[in-house]
C-alpha cells in the first residue's frame, strides 16, 4: 500500500479545474493511484472544489468503483453476469474463495490479494469468466479457477 502524501495527492488533483463536475473524475484518479481513497484525499478534494466534506464522502461511499479501504494488489474478479451465472459462476466463486482463503469482497490482511465480483464484462460467449488484474480468462471451471491462484 502506498502512503498518501500531500505532494502526490496534489500532483494528481492539480490538473482538474475546481468545478463540482470534476468530483467523480478526481476521486477516480486517486483511486487508481492508491487503490483506495485515503482520508486526506477526501479532505483535499473537498477543499479544491469548495464542497462540504460530507458531500465528497457521500459520493465516495456511493460508487462501487471507489473504495474507502485499500483494495488488494492482485485482484481476482469473477463476472456475475447472467450468462456467467447460468454457466456456473457460483461454483467458480466457491473455488476461488477456497483457494484464496477469502470471502467474496474481501482483501487479504497483507493487502496482496483481493476477491471481487463484477456484474458483466460483456464477454458472455466465454462464460463463466474471471479477470486477474484486468486479464480475462474464459470458460472457467472450479479446477481452472483454482489453478489461477
Amino acid at each position: 500500500m502506498t502512503n498518501p502524501d500531500q505532494k502526490t495527492l496534489n500532483s494528481i488533483l492539480d490538473g482538474y479545474p475546481g468545478e463540482p463536475v470534476n468530483l467523480l473524475p478526481m476521486l477516480q484518479a486517486v483511486q487508481t493511484k492508491f487503490r483506495y481513497l485515503p482520508r486526506e484525499a477526501i479532505i483535499l478534494v473537498a477543499e479544491k472544489l469548495s464542497l462540504p466534506k460530507s458531500r465528497v464522502f457521500a459520493v465516495a461511499n456511493f460508487y462501487r468503483a471507489l473504495s474507502l479501504t485499500p483494495k488488494g494488489e492482485k485482484v481476482f474478479t469473477v463476472c456475475q453476469g447472467t450468462a456467467c451465472h447460468l454457466r456456473g459462476a457460483p461454483v467458480v466463486i466457491g473455488a476461488l474463495e477456497k483457494a484464496l482463503g477469502l470471502n467474496l469482497g474481501q482483501t487479504s490482511p497483507d493487502g496482496r490479494y483481493g476477491l471481487e465480483s463484477v456484474n458483466c464484462l460483456g464477454a458472455c460467449a466465454l462464460a463463466p469468466v474471471v479477470t486477474v488484474d484486468g486479464v480475462l480468462h474464459g470458460a472457467m471451471t472450479a479446477k481452472k479457477a483454482a489453478k489461477l491462484v
Partner: peptide, 12 residues
C-alpha cells in the same frame, strides 16, 4: 452506462 448483465451491444 450499459449495466444489464448479459448485454454488450452498447460496449460493442
Amino acid at each position: 452506462d450499459e449495466g444489464d448483465p448479459g448485454a454488450f451491444m452498447n460496449r460493442s
